[in-house]
Structures are given as C-alpha cells and as structure tokens.
C-alpha cells in the first residue's frame, strides 16, 4: 500500500474505539503483577535494588604510540559488539583522524613496531583466518594500532547480573527510600586487578561505600590489550539504587 510509507495518517473513524471494557481484565494484570513480585523476591531484588544499564569505558592507548592518551567513550552495547566472544583475538581499532598532527612524529616510531607486529602476526597466526581481515588493513594507515578493550572474563551480562544480585540497599536509608545513581569509576590494571576505585557521582556516604564494595569484589576482568601488550583501561559504571515497595 502506498500509504504505508507515511509515518502519520489522519483518519476520520477508528474501529473498536469503545471496546475498552472488552479488553479490561484486572485479574490478568494482578496475576502478571504477582509473578513480577515473585521474580523480584526470588532474585532478592525487593527492597534493595541495583539496576545497572551501561558501562562506560575510557580507553587509554599506550603512550608509546601516541603523544597523549586518547579517551574514547564506549557504552555497554558497543563493548559487547567489540568483544562478542570473550577471550578472542584482538580487533583493529582505528585512531581518530584528528590526532594526526601530533601523531605524525610518532608515526615514524610507531609505524615500524606495528607493521612488524602485523607481519609477525600474519606469520604466526596464518591459520586463524577470522581475525586477519580486520588486522591486515592496519598496514595502510600508520596511525593505527591493535587494541582490544578490557572485558569481564565471564562477559558483561554476567557482570551486570552480579551487580544486580549483590548490591544491598543501605539499611539506614530505607525509611527515606532515596533513589538515585552512584557512578563509580575504576581502572582495570595490566595484571587484571581492579585499581583506583573512586566515586564519580555521589549519592551519600553509605551508598558510595556500598557501590565501591561491589565494584571491589566484582568478577575478574581481562585487561585491555594493545599490540598484544596489556594496558590499563578506565571504566565507569552507574549503579542505580532504588527501593521497591516492601515485600507483599
């Protein structure tokens, strides 16, 4: 139909406009709600909740390839796309063009190691075809390097599930039922430990402590790799505290 392309259609008559009562079914709604509550209780979400949506990563590329660390913001879904399968080979990351003026001097230094590295890689991993098309293109542009973002070994969804399950709403604040977000920044160091945990956006001392606690004990990360060398990488995680109504 030709009209299908239009986003909006003005009509003079709408069928079933008065059929609302036919569809109304409070019992179904109540059942759905009861199920929902049961799920909350099952996963201990009632009363103490974290809903964490996005992990933002700040990537520091090795200073040996650049004059200054470049910050690239990534959201969770991009991280997931970059690293669809944990513990796989690196992906080629193109550096932004605007770095070129600075990078030109560097280019000559970095060109060789990168190119050499690539040759080595082609030789040594010649049989592993999947990654090579990505990395071969590196030869054409000197200001490129191989970078793979750090990632939780068990995957980002596992990390989010861990946060969901382990965050405890501070008991002392329950009467106030404060809801809000603590943004916690941390660094995944070269040896895969978590360092420099700091609160970027605070929601009060108790919330901050709790957020830092779960981040400190979170599942192990695999460090970011650049040119097959581990590098540190900064991340931020927003942790949302929200108090659902008391248990039914």
């Amino acid at each position: 139909m030709a009209m299908e392309n239009k986003k909006v259609k003005i009509v003079r008559h709408i069928e079933h406009l008065h059929d609302g009562a036919k569809h109304s079914n409070f019992e179904a709604l109540y059942d759905q709600y009861t199920d929902y509550r049961a799920t909350l209780v099952k996963y201990k979400i009632v009363g103490a909740v974290c809903v964490s949506i996005a992990v933002t990563a700040i990537i520091y590329l090795l200073a040996s390839d650049l004059t200054k660390p470049e910050k690239i913001q990534m959201q969770t879904h991009e991280l997931m796309r970059l690293a669809p399968k944990p513990l796989q080979h690196g992906l080629a990351t193109r550096l932004p063009d605007r770095l070129d003026p600075n990078a030109q001097i560097k280019t000559k230094q970095s060109e060789l190691p990168v190119a050499r590295l690539m040759e080595q890689k082609e030789e040594s991993t010649g049989s592993e075809e999947a990654v090579i098309p990505d990395t071969v293109s590196i030869d054409t542009s000197p200001s490129m390097s191989v970078f793979r973002a750090a990632q939780p070994i068990a995957g980002i969804s596992h990390l989010l599930a861990y946060l969901q399950a382990n965050i405890i709403y501070p008991e002392a604040h329950k009467p106030d039922s404060i809801s809000g977000t603590v943004v916690v920044g941390f660094t995944v160091l070269e040896d895969s430990t978590i360092g420099a945990i700091k609160v970027v956006q605070s929601l009060g001392a108790l919330f901050d402590e709790e957020a830092k606690r779960v981040v400190r004990h979170m599942p192990t990360w695999q460090p970011a790799m650049q040119n097959q060398k581990p590098v540190k990488q900064d991340f931020t995680i927003p942790i949302t505290f929200q108090l659902f109504s008391e248990q039914p």
Binding site: K7, K9, V11, R12, H13, I14, L17
Partner: peptide, 9 residues
C-alpha cells in the same frame, strides 16, 4: 508503525 490521528469534521 504508522501513527494514527483521529480527526472529524
């Protein structure tokens, strides 16, 4: 999907 707007004379 298409948005509809109901409008009479």
């Amino acid at each position: 999907n298409q948005r509809f707007v109901l409008m009479d004379d």
